[in-house]
Write a protein that binds this DNA or RNA. Structure first.
Length: 873
RNA sequence: GGGAGCAUAGCUCAGCCGGUUAGAGCACUUGCCUUACAAGCAAGGGGUCACUGGUUCGAGUCCAGUUGUUCCCACCA
């Protein structure tokens, strides 16, 4: 046993404890046939990213679950890993190149990839180290990367399998294109933002000169790609001109006027220009009416096929075209108009719908099973409302565009034959065309969406498609923890991928948390500069304080605001526990955790409360109510253990009775040990540090068994009995404070009570905690002279303190009368309830009994108050 | 257009299956360096649980509607 410093310093402890855990190999999950597995795969952070509070939130939840299960006897695997993050990483490396005056094309594909790998190797370890400072108990030996060989194999296997099942196809469609990232995006990767814009009304003259149409558009520049105008077939205004042609202003092209249900008559002018290559709806209308397809934007968002506008950037072109329309007299009017614009989730530039040849996953067939497993409850969302979010998306899911025009990622395993045109899709790198055996083949230059490999994460990380021992033992995984913002990106795709590839759900529970916001409730972001660096917080307050801050005062699925001051409060809590432990150790002479043979009243009280706590915390953890569990442990430690039990023990510890002292020591050590175990998943560092310093049964707290409810340690009667003593102590303190009596001014306390036994057992505690010089326990019927006595009244007792000089008879009487009034009101309320036939007959017995007890208590209080009044004379 | 969340103390939030006198942290007031802890102890002040109606013996909690607010989804040119 060693001396602990007075103030807890996490910096002295956390690194040392983490290394101890690593050295002990405690994070490593063995395939143990005698244990049940419990598996969580980490949502892989971007390999070159930095830890932010969102990660801290996510990882803390997972670490709590893993540590709980590990202590509870499971072979608990928390599998860590990182995502190659195609677009994000490529952007970063290209940025770096730009600063050197280079582009990726200068390096060529191979050279560029070398550069990215170098970048990955340089920064990839940073986030690992940061996760460690949080205390994450990941099985680092099983660390994975979405670009490593195992994951690559899973990607190929899946791609080829889906291709053979015709669930992956290549086709020309309107996709989302980011001109900045110069790649296609999936629907999920587009964020719609309401932006102020304009509605330009433009004249399209009829070709036969018989009139004109007014067309309203938010994007005049796309008229370069117009190949028709559509009206609603039921629109009387345009009945006669359907089938005619009009002339596209500035361009001069004659384009047909068609009738299509898609057009809403009461929006704008009821005429819609058709730009099939740059609008998904127009595309469909064009297909129905055989309109031409004119592509008018290139990969960078510059004009092509647009005559004099060629080469202009899309925004520049808009200005030029509006000006020309106005000059040519085609512009009728301009209205302000706010509409939602799709933006790229990585670079936030406007996304262009673009007609393009891409690879897709056919979603309908896959969605079927993904819907069923959630509808049938095989996969549960916590909180449940997110299953609705998920299902709604899945019901309406559209084909997933998976090809990206990037270099960093899993290259699409498709080879095109220059001789016969056949496409060879193969798990192994193809060397010849599988149709004509020509060697004149080229691999598709594109890579797969990053989320394609993430989708396989729960099983690819365990070795799939190989039937590995790990896969057999740890898969399906158990809980997936993530924010609601990536349900579509990731959760949904893991579910259907697992169902299709492994014929199993990937996990049975999806635990959804919200996002961490700044004190104003705004999203934290780099650009807003309101981010808080968790590493700095850990440095200042400790990882335990950060973890506890994040996890308390917040419920599943809800956003939470981050207050640095709360970290201070949690650091104080850690310090409180530290000092309580110090106190226990200072008084400790026993060297094993073992309860004494004889328990005193407060011992039974605290043990019974601890026992209840154990039961409740387990229930809360099992229901993923981590915040509630944490709050209960906090309350127990601070209030029950520190403010009451430790104080209650001081009398015995300082007393002459050696046996009583030892008894107190043993119970203190037992309860402290229980607390450390309960708290460990939440505050792993400080609890381990203390555990190592006190007598302990396990070599480390991290693998000590989590406490279990023990019926033998439940003492409801003693618990309730001791509460009577505590009531008396509180009442005495309160009265003394009211009268301004300092603690140093001790006074004798006479207890008049029917509960003589309990108060006799509690007398020493009343004496110490209520600043009494001595305590005398008398019967309830004590009728001695009470002149000059201060009377303190609780339902169980009348407490008399001789303090003649402080007694104001009138004030005393008034006070007692006031209390009496309150007690009567209370009793009346109770009696009204109990007199209600409906209540007594319909409410559960326990509730009625509780009400009766309350009435009894009120009656007892009234009797005591009346007695006190009588005694005053 | 569809869907969801939130509205509880000055601030930020808990409050699970409806059942004491609605809780916590921070802030505030008063008194204490009581030999574990002033990052502390004790005692207090502060709430018509957004509004209206309903179900119920009983509603912060369940239902309907209203208002405010946040978010998600959707092909509103």
């Amino acid at each position: 046993m060693r001396e602990l410093p007075k103030v807890y310093d996490p910096r002295q402890v956390e690194k040392k404890i983490y290394d101890m855990w690593l050295d002990g190999g405690y994070f490593h999950a063995e395939r143990d046939p005698h244990k049940k597995p419990f598996t969580i795969v980490i949502p892989p952070p971007n390999v070159t990213g930095q830890l932010h509070l969102g990660h801290a939130f996510d990882e803390t939840i997972q670490d709590i679950l893993i540590r709980y299960k590990r202590m509870d006897g499971y072979s608990a695997l928390w599998l860590p890993g990182y995502d190659h993050a195609g677009i994000a990483t490529q952007i970063k490396v290209e940025e770096k190149l730009r600063n050197e005056g280079k582009t990726r094309f200068d390096l060529g594909r191979e050279g560029f990839l070398d550069e990215v790998w170098a970048w990955k190797n340089k920064f990839g370890n940073r986030i690992v180290e940061q996760l460690k400072t949080l205390g994450s108990s990941c099985d680092w030996a099983r660390q994975r990367f979405t670009m490593d060989d195992t994951c690559a194999k899973a990607v190929r296997e899946t791609f080829v399998d889906l291709y053979r099942k015709k669930l992956i196809y290549k086709g020309k469609k309107i996709i989302n294109w980011c001109p900045k990232c110069t790649t296609a995006l999936s629907d999920a990767e587009v964020e719609y933002v309401d932006k102020p814009g304009h509605l330009w009304h433009v004249r399209y003259p009829l070709a036969d000169g018989s009139g004109e149409l007014i067309i309203a558009t938010t994007r005049p520049e796309t008229m370069l790609g117009d190949t028709g105008v559509a009206v609603n077939p039921a629109d009387e205004r345009y009945k006669d001109i359907v089938g005619k042609k009009c002339i596209l202003p500035l361009v001069g092209r004659e384009i047909p006027i068609v009738a299509d249900e898609y057009v809403e008559m009461d929006f704008g002018t009821g005429c819609v220009k058709m730009t099939p290559c740059h609008d998904p709806n127009d595309f469909e209308v064009a297909q129905r009416h055989n309109l031409d397809f004119v592509l008018m934007l290139d990969e960078h968002g510059r004009i092509i096929n647009g005559g004099k506008y060629n080469g202009m950037d899309r925004y520049e072109a808009r200005k030029a075209i509006v000006a020309d329309l106005e000059a040519g007299g085609y512009l009728v009017k301009v209205e302000d108009y706010a509409h939602s614009v799709g933006t790229c989730y990585r670079c936030h530039n406007d996304v262009e719908p673009l007609y393009s040849d891409q690879w897709f996953v056919k979603m309908q067939p896959l969605a079927k099973e993904a819907i069923r497993v959630v509808e049938d409850g095989e996969v549960k969302f916590v909180p449940d409302r997110f299953s609705k979010t998920y299902l709604n998306w899945m019901y309406n899911v559209r084909d997933w565009c998976i090809s990206r025009q990037l270099w960093w990622g899993h290259r699409i395993p498709a080879w095109y034959c220059d001789d016969c045109g056949h496409v060879t899709v193969s798990k192994e790198d193809a060397t010849e065309c599988e149709a004509c055996h020509s060697h004149n083949i080229r691999q598709d230059p594109d890579v797969l969406d990053t989320w394609f490999s993430s989708a396989l994460w729960p099983f690819s990380t365990l070795g799939w498609p190989e039937e590995t021992e790990d896969l057999k033992y740890f898969y399906p995984t158990d809980v997936l923890v993530t924010g609601y913002d990536i349900i579509f990106f990731w959760v949904a795709r893991m579910i259907f991928s697992a169902c299709e590839q492994t014929h199993s759900i990937p996990f049975h529970t999806v635990l959804i948390h919200g996002i961490i916001r700044d004190p104003q409730g705004k999203k934290m972001s780099k650009s807003a500069g309101n981010g808080v660096d968790p590493v700095e917080i850990i440095e200042k307050y400790g990882a335990d304080a950060l973890r506890f801050n994040i996890i308390t005062g917040n419920s599943p699925g809800n956003d939470t605001r981050f207050y640095v001051e709360r970290c201070e409060a949690m650091r104080n809590f850690a310090n409180k526990l530290w000092n309580a432990s110090r106190f226990v150790m200072m008084n400790l002479t026993v060297d094993e955790v073992k309860l004494p043979g004889e328990l005193e009243l407060p011992d039974k009280w605290v043990l019974s409360k601890l026992n209840t706590l154990v039961k409740e915390v387990r229930e809360n953890l099992d229901k993923y109510e981590l915040g509630i569990a944490a709050q209960k442990i906090y309350d127990f430690i601070w209030d029950t253990f520190c403010d009451w039990y430790i104080e209650l023990c001081k009398a015995r510890l300082n007393g002459a009775d050696a046996k009583a002292k030892e008894g107190a020591e043993r119970v203190l050590l037992y309860v402290l040990t229980g607390i450390l175990k309960l708290l460990h998943p939440f505050m792993p560092f400080i609890t381990e540090e203390i555990y190592q310093a006190i007598p302990h049964e396990s070599e480390a707290l991290i693998i000590a068994p989590y406490p279990e409810y023990d019926p033998a340690l439940s003492f409801p009667q003693e618990e309730a009995g001791f509460e009577l003593v505590m009531d008396a102590i509180r009442a005495l303190r309160s009265r003394r404070a009211d009268m301004g009596v300092p603690p140093s001014r001790k006074a004798k306390v006479m207890v008049c009570t029917a509960e003589k036994g309990i108060f006799e057992a509690g007398a020493q505690y009343v004496q110490r905690l209520a600043s009494a010089s001595e305590v005398e326990v008398l019967g309830a019927d004590y009728g001695g002279d009470t002149a000059g006595m201060v009377a303190v009244t609780t339902p169980a007792a009348r407490l008399l303190m001789p303090m003649a000089e402080l007694v104001d008879l009138e004030a005393e009487r008034a006070r007692l009368n006031k209390e009496l009034e309150k007690a009567h009101a209370q009793l009346e309320a109770q009696n009204r309830k109990l007199a209600n036939e409906n209540f007594v007959s319909r409410a559960p017995e326990a509730v009625v009994n509780a009400e009766r007890e309350r009435a009894e208590k009120a009656k007892a209080l009234i009797a005591n108050l009346e007695e006190s009044l009588r005694a005053l004379g």
